[in-house]
Design a binder for these strands. Structure first.
Lengths: 123, 123
DNA sequence: TTAACATATGAACAATTGTTCATATGTTAA
DNA sequence: TTAACATATGAACAATTGTTCATATGTTAA
């Protein structure tokens, strides 16, 4: 939120009051946090990943279980698990040839439920 | 979650127990809802839109105010407001030449705060 | 060791997305 | 009416993304 006024905007005159500008600047999280937050939601913004997470709400599962439940290829699931792993939303443990994935976050369920409330309100 | 077993998967043998499969099928939301949920999070999955929403937490604002606060062009903001409008996350009112946007949802703030908790835990 | 199998991953591809630029649309003051 | 201005929007473009296909990697049983 630094370096304002540098880029030209169409509207020359501001409607907004100074104290609101100040409040926004005070309450807006840092650029890095905003970026991370967007990255987190981006991960949730794909229905395959949503389904994987929703399956893992129930129990830990191996890759082929998830592929079976979601009726998708092992490769597609594996690629998406990598994304979830990178976002630190799932953890995994290897047991022989099988790799079991499970959720690694306490907030996901609440975030999903709140999202569902939004969906349901507008149906 | 219908029509399983149609697509071939690499792993022939399931590790998962039948009662877990049943639980997942019971608790997994309907395909349409999962899709809508993903669409909602997709909207949150962009830092420009996150910033717009965070600014609107403070007060209703016109397009040029938002452009000024975020140091972006009017056009970019306008395009993103259209996305937010389509997701029914913002409403607007016209006052002369100016159009004021405001938030149209009670869940957003809680969802964002929970997302932030996730971010903060892993820093 | 080797065959069998679960999983991971790189390359390719089509599809989607965010911004810019130019310009259309809507509104008001003169 | 018309000029000025706030906003909306279509086209274009580069960048990102999800899946598929082929195959590499890791593990175990024989």
């Amino acid at each position: 939120m630094e370096e304002k006024k540098k880029k030209a905007i169409t509207c020359g005159q501001l409607i907004i009051h100074d104290d609101i500008i100040k409040k926004v600047e005070e309450n807006m999280p840092k650029e890095d946090d905003l970026y991370d937050l967007a990255e987190l939601f981006k991960v949730f913004g794909d229905s395959t990943r949503i389904k994987i997470i929703w399956a893992l709400f129930e129990s830990e599962m191996c890759v082929c279980d998830i592929a079976y439940l979601l009726n998708m290829t092992q490769s597609a699931i594996s690629h998406q698990l990598r994304v979830l792993k990178a976002a630190r939303l799932v953890r995994y443990r290897r047991s022989g040839k099988t790799v079991f994935y499970s959720l690694d976050d306490n907030h996901i369920k609440q975030i999903f439920e709140m999202g569902m409330e939004h969906i349901k309100e507008r149906q």
